[in-house]
């Protein structure tokens, strides 16, 4: 049962990261099209705005995956110094992390709602209703909050969280 939940959650974090990676490729494509449109004289209105939206989506959707891969950084001096008592340090960090990311997620979702309710429209040539590009960002923020809560719970239950530093490149000890 728990292992199923574990697998499902990890699959969600990783699929969001794949979506994020696709957004990064799309940024590249949009910018190339933007240059090409200028060279050829065909217009591509709103391209800069689309690139911006894709960047926001790319960053936010990858937040949770980056957390579990140890890509988000922190000052771990005190944690190391705690030695055998490290659990309490980790607990504190995850508590604050869960609170802060939940706060972020709440207001990210609220911003989407207000953008929709206000009919807030991009001021650029794209004239996109802003709630649309804000939606993936809010989803990523929610996912980050879920991921923090997930880690907090895992830590409390098993005394070990799911954050694994990717030791592939350049571990320096």
């Amino acid at each position: 049962m728990t292992s199923t939940i574990r697998r499902v959650l990890d699959a969600i974090y990783d699929s969001a990261a794949v979506l994020a990676a696709i957004c990064l490729v799309l940024i590249l494509i949009v910018i190339v099209l933007q240059m090409a449109s200028r060279w050829t004289g065909i217009s591509f209105p709103g391209s800069t705005a689309y690139a911006g939206y894709l960047m926001a989506a790319s960053s936010f959707l990858a937040f949770a995956h980056a957390l579990n891969r140890g890509a988000h950084i922190r000052v771990s001096l005190l944690l190391t110094a705690l030695g055998g008592q490290r659990f309490w340090g980790e607990l504190w960090g995850l508590l604050i992390g869960t609170a802060a990311s939940t706060y972020l997620a709440w207001y990210a979702v609220k911003a989407v709602y207000w953008s929709y309710a206000f009919n807030d429209i991009s001021q650029g040539q794209d004239a996109t209703p802003i709630w649309i590009p804000q939606l993936p960002a809010a989803a990523g923020a929610v996912l980050l909050a879920v991921c923090f809560a997930d880690n907090l719970l895992t830590l409390v239950l098993t005394r070990r969280d799911n954050i694994r530093s990717s030791a592939i490149d350049q571990t320096a000890e």
Partner: peptide, 12 residues
């Protein structure tokens, strides 16, 4: 054919 900076719908 001049390359004209457009920054919104009206200038475009």
């Amino acid at each position: 054919g001049i390359k004209f900076r457009a920054y919104n719908a009206a200038t475009a």
